[in-house]
Amino acid sequence: MIRWITVLIITLLAWTPAHTAEFKWMDESGTTYTLDSLKGKPALVHFWASWCPSCRAEMPAFAQWVSNHPQIKTISVTLDQKAANATAFLQEAGIDMPLLLTDENQARKLGAQALPTTIIIDADGEVSQLHRGPRDWSSKAYSDQLLKSLLPEAQNAPLHAQR
């Protein structure tokens, strides 16, 4: 019995995504990028798809959050197989965001097993936070949590100024 439990634990540990972020994506022109190019800077990676109802509902607030925080390196990547579907959704929703593409295998390398998924990559290129499922991007508490990880100066500063 203990042998089976040990095998199960080892299997589950092997299935858990690696903490070091290995991930590739491309832009509409076909240029491929990797997270290695961001080493030294934290980044927020957001996975979505136009066919995902939760993603569609969350995307306007996410786009507003990104717009409100231009100092954050944000990589918003669709898992749509056809770029035209993602482009049509972004246009329909009035979202002005670059179209970046990847596939399910690349997304899983970072631990995305559901959509939408938001992942924080630290300055060392490792996954520091993994948020599966839709989030309330208008929430100050959620925003503060992300900003504390993404802005080095925010780690030493109080979230609320004292008077």
Results as ranks from 00 to 15, higher is better:
D36K: 07
T74C: 11
G125F: 02
A83Y: 14
N105T: 11
A123C: 03
L90I: 07
V66W: 10
L146I: 04
T11H: 00
L101Y: 14
K39Y: 04
P98A: 12
N156Y: 13
E58P: 00
T118P: 00
K148D: 02
T34W: 01
I10H: 02
G40H: 14
W15A: 14
S29Q: 14
Q71T: 11
H160C: 06
S139F: 01
R108Y: 07
R135Y: 00
A83Q: 15
L130P: 07
L38Y: 11
M1K: 15
I9Y: 01
H46F: 01
W137G: 00
D124H: 10
V66Y: 04
E104I: 14
G133W: 04
D27P: 03
R163W: 14
G133T: 02
I119H: 06
I10S: 06
F23E: 08
P17S: 13
E153R: 12
A141I: 09
R56Y: 02
A114G: 14
N68T: 10
A57R: 11
R132D: 01
F62Q: 13
T87N: 12
S67G: 12
Y142M: 02
K148R: 11
P152A: 12
K109R: 15
L38S: 01
A18M: 14
S76A: 15
F23G: 08
H46N: 13
L110V: 04
P152T: 11
W25F: 13
A86M: 09
D124T: 13
H69V: 10
L130T: 09
E22V: 14
Y33E: 09
D122A: 05
G111K: 10
L147Q: 05
T102Q: 05
T74D: 06
V7A: 13
M97I: 03
Q162V: 08
Y33K: 09
H19K: 14
R3S: 04
A93Y: 11
P53Y: 06
R108C: 03
M1N: 10
S67W: 12
S67H: 15
Y33G: 05
F62K: 12
M59D: 05
A161V: 11
H19L: 15
K73D: 13
I9T: 06
I5D: 06
L101D: 07
H160T: 15
